[in-house]
Structure formats: structure tokens, C-alpha cells
């Protein structure tokens, strides 16, 4: 690390030695409260947010997930979409991208309310002493493609609706099957999303699918850490535009012993985090940037999170020993 003032170094040490999981828990809770209940305080951060601040949570929301307006815009009649409305789509995307660039996938690991709910389900399971399940390597390789498929459908179906190919009752297609639409409004006492819409056969299929996926979500994220993030089209969209992002996950392969500690704690089972020693930019498409890997790396400087090139959280031997309760006798 560059020679810096002792005060800055002391600050860095304090950050690097932080009880990371505890910090993250409180951070996520605060973000959850802000985005699920902030609406009551008249907070409105717009409708281009790069995470699941669900728009269906009409009273409590402090902003809206970008996927909702995006699908609405894309389902405009083609004549409008490919003329002046196209500009609105572009400016919308630009605002979304500006939000995104700030935290990169850190939105998933620290802010997204649906991600936070999955972490809560995980800790419930852990408290019950039940073990999590994992994918085999082969399953992982296949399933990791699903999010791109969902992203493609999420763009193509609204376009089809706009072109008159599909029924309007399918709009917005992803929101209709997204578990956030049912779960987040529940937190403000709104259970109205738990219905099957019988107005048309398309609506019926979509809302029924939505209920089944929500059930799957609850069971899935109980047994599997961050179950849904693996299939999230937002995550796929993030990855496609992640190059200019300010928050970055960096790895120095020469300091890595490939001990696999980071891989072991990774909620998303990303093997590259341990085994890839060539790429310095180690964030993969499945990553949620929860930074647990950095906190569990025993090699000083091997993994770090940087913001605009400045290291803000770095793996250190001392921090690792402190966090893992090493160097102290059992029972203390």
C-alpha cells in the first residue's frame, strides 16, 4: 500500500479489522428499512434504481426498481417506441446506469431488499442448525445461464406486446413472476399481490407462475444461500454494463495461496474467486459483491474492494485472525 499518513493508516486498519458480517447485517437492515418504508417519510429516489425496490410496494417504497418502467417502456406500440419514446428509454437507461456505476453489484450484496430477505432466511436456517445445500459443478455451469435467458425474455416479451404479438395482460412479464412483487408489499401490510388474476388466460398463467415462483423462492432460499440471485435478470444486466463501475473487487493472484477460504464462504459458490490467479478484476456475473470473500481471506492484500481505484476494504492476516476468532482460546 502507498505510504500514507499514520491517521489514514489507522483508519484503514480499523476498517480492515471490522467484524464484517455484523457490519453488513446492520447495513442491510438500514437499507431495507429505507427502501421498504422510506415512502412513508416521502422519500422518493426515482424509478431507475438498480435493485429490487419493488414498485408494487406502493405506500412504503422509497424508489422503484428499474425493471418495472423498462418493461413498460419497451411494451409501447412500436411506432412510438422507435420514434420519440425511444429517447425516454435511452435517458431512463442512462439514469439507471449512473446509479449502477456507483456501487456496481454492491447493490445486490448490500442494498437489495430481496437479497436481504434471502440472507435473513439463511440465518434462520443456520440458527435451526440445518445445513445449506450446494450445486454440483455441472449444475452450476448450466444454471448460471438462466439469468441471461430471463433477461432476454424480459426484453423480448414487452417488445412483442408492443408489436401486438402478445397480450397486454402479460405486462410487465418479469414483474408478474418476480417474488419481490408479492413479498415486499407484504412488509407494509399489503397482501393484495397474492392473487391469481382470472381476467384472461395469459394473466392467469403469469400470476399463477408468480405464486409458484414465490413459493419456490421461500423454500429455495431457505435451503440454498442467495437462491434467487443466481437467476436474477437484473444481475445479468448489471454484469453487462459493469466495466466502468466505480466499486470493484480486485485480486492479486501473486499473493493468493488458493486455500479456498473465499470460495468456502461464497454464497454464490463462485470457484474463480479462489482459483483464478490471472484476472485482477475478479467479479463474475454471479457475484453479489457481498465482500464476504475479502473478509475471509487470510492473505494480506490478496483480495480488496476499491472505489474509483482507492482501496476501501482489504484482506489482512490480522483482520482474518480477529474475525475467525483465531488467536484466542476457546470459550473467551
Amino acid at each position: 500500500m502507498k505510504a500514507s499518513s499514520p491517521r489514514l493508516q489507522a483508519l484503514r486498519d480499523a476498517v480492515n479489522h471490522v467484524h464484517f458480517n455484523r457490519f453488513r447485517f446492520w447495513f442491510q437492515l438500514a437499507a431495507f428499512v429505507l427502501f421498504v418504508y422510506g415512502g412513508y417519510l416521502a422519500i422518493d429516489l426515482g424509478s431507475r434504481l438498480p435493485f429490487f425496490a419493488c414498485g408494487y410496494n406502493q405506500e412504503g417504497r422509497a424508489g422503484v426498481c428499474y425493471l418495472l418502467p423498462l418493461q413498460h417502456q419497451l411494451s409501447l406500440p412500436w411506432a412510438r417506441l422507435f420514434s420519440y419514446a425511444g429517447i425516454a428509454v435511452l435517458t431512463g437507461f442512462l439514469i439507471f446506469a449512473l446509479w449502477f456505476i456507483f456501487l456496481n453489484k454492491g447493490w445486490c450484496g448490500f442494498i437489495c431488499p430481496l437479497g436481504t430477505i434471502q440472507d435473513w432466511l439463511t440465518s434462520l436456517r443456520r440458527r435451526l442448525g440445518i445445513r445449506y445445500s450446494t450445486y454440483s459443478h455441472g449444475q452450476f455451469a448450466q444454471l448460471t445461464k438462466v439469468k441471461y435467458l430471463l433477461l432476454a425474455l424480459m426484453i423480448l416479451i414487452p417488445l412483442g406486446i408492443g408489436g401486438g404479438l402478445f397480450s397486454h395482460s402479460m405486462s410487465p412479464p418479469f414483474c408478474l413472476i418476480c417474488p419481490a412483487r408479492m413479498i415486499l408489499p407484504m412488509f407494509t401490510g399489503d397482501f393484495s399481490q397474492f392473487t391469481i388474476d382470472f381476467s384472461s388466460s395469459a394473466a392467469m398463467v403469469m400470476t399463477a407462475l408468480g405464486i409458484s415462483i414465490t413459493a419456490l423462492f421461500l423454500v429455495g432460499s431457505f435451503v440454498k444461500k442467495r437462491f434467487f440471485c443466481f437467476f436474477c435478470p437484473m444481475s445479468a444486466l448489471h454484469y453487462l454494463i459493469s466495466k466502468p463501475a466505480l466499486l470493484k473487487l480486485k485480486k492479486d493472484g501473486s499473493k493468493c495461496t488458493r486455500c479456498g477460504d473465499c470460495y468456502n464462504v461464497c454464497d454464490m459458490e463462485i470457484k474463480e474467486i479462489a482459483d483464478d490467479i490471472k484476472n485482477t478484476n475478479i467479479m463474475t456475473d454471479d457475484c453479489t459483491m457481498c465482500l464476504k470473500c475479502v473478509a475471509s481471506c487470510p492473505e494480506t492484500g490478496a483480495l480488496k474492494a476499491t472505489f474509483a481505484g482507492i482501496p476501501i476494504f482489504e484482506s489482512t492476516e490480522a483482520g482474518f485472525i480477529k474475525r475467525m476468532g483465531k488467536g484466542v482460546q476457546h470459550g473467551k
Binding site: 445445513r131 495461496t257 473465499c262 464462504v265 464476504k292 481471506c297 482474518f320 485472525i321 475467525m324 483465531k326
Partner: peptide, 14 residues
């Protein structure tokens, strides 16, 4: 003696 173990969930299996 060098390599240390990180555990995510302190359950026997993990």
C-alpha cells in the same frame, strides 16, 4: 502450520 481455515456457518458439516 501456515494455512488457516475460514468457516462460514459454524455447524459440524460446514
Amino acid at each position: 502450520l501456515y494455512d488457516m481455515t475460514a468457516v462460514d456457518e459454524w455447524l459440524v458439516n460446514d
